[in-house]
Design a protein around this nucleic acid. Structure first.
Lengths: 123, 123
DNA sequence: TCATCATATCAGCCTTCACTGATATGATAC
DNA sequence: GTATCATATCAGTGAAGGCTGATATGATGA
């Protein structure tokens, strides 16, 4: 019987990256996200482009939205159309956090990671 | 009944990123990988640092290894020790492909993505 | 009002996958 | 040789998640 330490909430840097990785770790979502970095599209356009059923696309968009990777916007004139696009700020933040993770020194406030390293130093 | 287009193998850029995202879309593996970007460690050190059972750590290392994110090396003097480290080349490649994905124009050879965009242009 | 369009949500099915415990392999020490 | 250490692998279990089909919501148009 192995005693596991209680799972603490992940550190800020790790948590955000983890959310993004989970959201992009699916081929369909990665394709949708890639499309949305190029241009703003409504749901039906994505369906047509990828040849996927509506409910599936809508589900995947919800996942990407909850991960903060894309933003939804209702069309001003035709309110039933919802347009999605990749969130440029989220993308920039993600890129920075990815760089931070790969840095040599643990990022400030990244306690979980610091603890992991610290535990190695104890003989 | 919705007729789905046959799933073609993903494009080079997308495929590599997808493999990496899948490998890093797990909190335990992300912690292990983060540790290995800091220093080279053997399996038992990772176990101790994270407080996880041996088989679990070994399993996660196998996933990271198969994804090309880490490299294993047997110690020259004590051959039962296997040291792992993050693969710097893989990390660099990953960073570049991530940047490529976020570019406006589809990368050369990224046919799947080009097809997705093209299909949108057909009225 | 009624029908239709665009999107969201939900239940069920099925696959994938993280975790555990046990066993296998292979090197080192006695 | 036998015992132990370090690691890898495998079967079983339970949970998470992708996909589908149906339904719900809400806007638009006749």
């Amino acid at each position: 019987m192995v005693v596991r330490r209680p799972v603490e909430p992940a550190t800020p840097v790790t948590r955000d990256l983890l959310v993004a990785f989970k959201a992009l770790a699916d081929e369909t979502r990665l394709r949708i996200f890639t499309l949305l970095t190029r241009q703003e599209l409504c749901v039906c356009e994505i369906e047509e482009a990828l040849g996927l059923p509506q409910s599936l696309v809508s589900n995947h968009l919800a996942v990407l939205r909850q991960a903060g990777l894309v933003r939804a916007r209702r069309d001003e004139t035709v309110a039933r159309w919802v347009f999605y696009r990749a969130d440029p700020e989220a993308v920039a933040t993600l890129r920075q956090k990815w760089a931070t993770l790969l840095e040599v020194k643990p990022a400030p406030g990244d306690r979980r990671r610091a603890e992991d390293v610290c535990r190695l130093r104890r003989p």
